[in-house]
Design a protein around this nucleic acid. Structure first.
Lengths: 231, 231
DNA sequence: ACTCTTCTTTGCTTAAGCGCAAATAACAAA
DNA sequence: TTTGTTATTTGCGCTTAAGCAAAGAAGAGT
């Protein structure tokens, strides 16, 4: 498959990039395709490449020594990920990147990105915007995990994921994630997720299926997220 | 009080700044002093200033709608904080900044910082380094909160705080924080913190006092943090 | 030295939600 | 269709740590 450089303008960080820069990026980078469940990189690998996801979906996960993992972010088409390596030359990936479905991504050498940043203010600003967004989101999620009960956290997680990777399908927002994914993204377990989602389904808030969640009544979820009690 | 511009070189982000820039910063900024427990700003305020802490200690906290709060970071002398506002002009502070003791900080207009970034690569790189560090730390803390039990999390929190704001005192590292602060930084409660610290004190790992913790055996804490069971 | 305030400790109770086990359901591949 | 695999559901017991209440200890101010 070939990438059309002009498509890279859909990448947030690159939306103001001149076409010459996009050509340069495509020319100097390679397209890496991986099958479902394979990894682009593992936690602890030297951060040699930054990636732009061209097709598919990828999740960034972090594991503790015992192997339990949390979902830090799900990447969709034309999002950049693993760009942090471009900042610190000796960095290692602090997370692993695993494909949720067959995916392909443009692997850009960290050093190329670093060199380009020297002379291209739009890149600096774009990356900084991206990073401040990450920081704020992680701070919020951290607070939620520390202070909110599971049900509310689950609602917050699902709403957040819906805005990030949900896609419309017949007027409703659908989330292509397993309950395992939701559990790892919300800091809970598949058992509690299943119980809660079933309960919500009974109340007509959502519709569940194997590996997907359809939002029937987003406003109801917002109410749960913001404090309405279940009974 | 007056600030000696050359002192600003102790700020990580500014360590490569030429003296003219430091002069400019001091000249265009104002020194704000606040007493203990007062706030430099509140969560939700327009992010008009970035700060460099000159004396004292400041904590960055985030509250949920119910008022429960978490401790996201403790700032010590010559650290920069609230710099995110410089990236997005319309930003509001996502956290509040409260003085842990009488403090003074240089208030730098976000727009000044933003303008300076246009022509000073060292500033861009410095801020990016700072931000990547934040992101990685928050990701780790998030995973810890999601996957580790309290005792281990407490050990991790105390070790992290020791490296960030601990100071040597008689060959040992001392942490000038109340148990309330520890609870808010680790995502726990004062009751559990008290019980755990008492237990550790009995085992000779630490020494506690009103508003401070002295590490007697850091290695023992590392063992708890990394998985040794207590019994 | 005395008083007030704030921080810390500890016993007790309880709710939340984890996690095993086993059943059921959904999908994929042959 | 059949079989195998993986995801979801649900009952049940149990652990963890939250949180109230009340006492004790340590400072700060007068």
């Amino acid at each position: 498959m070939k990438i059309n450089p002009a498509d890279l303008n859909q990448v947030n960080v690159l939306k103001e990039a001149p076409i010459e820069d996009l050509n340069l990026l495509v020319e100097k980078s390679i397209l890496r395709s991986v099958e479902e469940d394979s990894f682009y990189f593992f936690q602890g690998d030297p951060a040699k490449y930054a990636y732009v996801l061209v097709t598919g979906r990828v999740k960034l996960v972090q594991s503790n020594p015992a192997g339990q993992q949390v979902n830090l972010r799900t990447i969709k088409q034309w999002e950049i990920f693993a760009a942090l390596g471009a900042i610190r030359p000796e960095a290692v990936y602090p997370v692993a990147a695993q494909a949720l479905e067959p995916s392909s991504a443009l692997a850009i050498e960290s050093s190329l990105l670093r060199d380009m940043m020297q002379t291209r203010p739009y890149l600096n600003f774009g990356l900084m915007q991206l990073m401040t967004g990450y920081i704020q989101e992680m701070q919020e999620r951290y607070r939620e995990l520390a202070t909110e009960k599971v049900e509310r956290r689950l609602a917050l997680t699902i709403l957040r994921l819906a805005s990030q990777i949900g896609h419309k399908s017949g007027g409703q927002i659908e989330l292509p994630l397993s309950q395992q994914d939701i559990a790892e993204a919300s800091g809970s377990t598949i058992y509690t997720v299943s119980r809660t989602l079933s309960e919500w389904e009974k109340r007509g808030l959502i519709e569940t299926g194997r590996g997907r969640i359809v939002m029937r009544n987003p406003h109801g979820l917002v109410e749960i997220a913001e404090g309405a009690e279940s009974a």
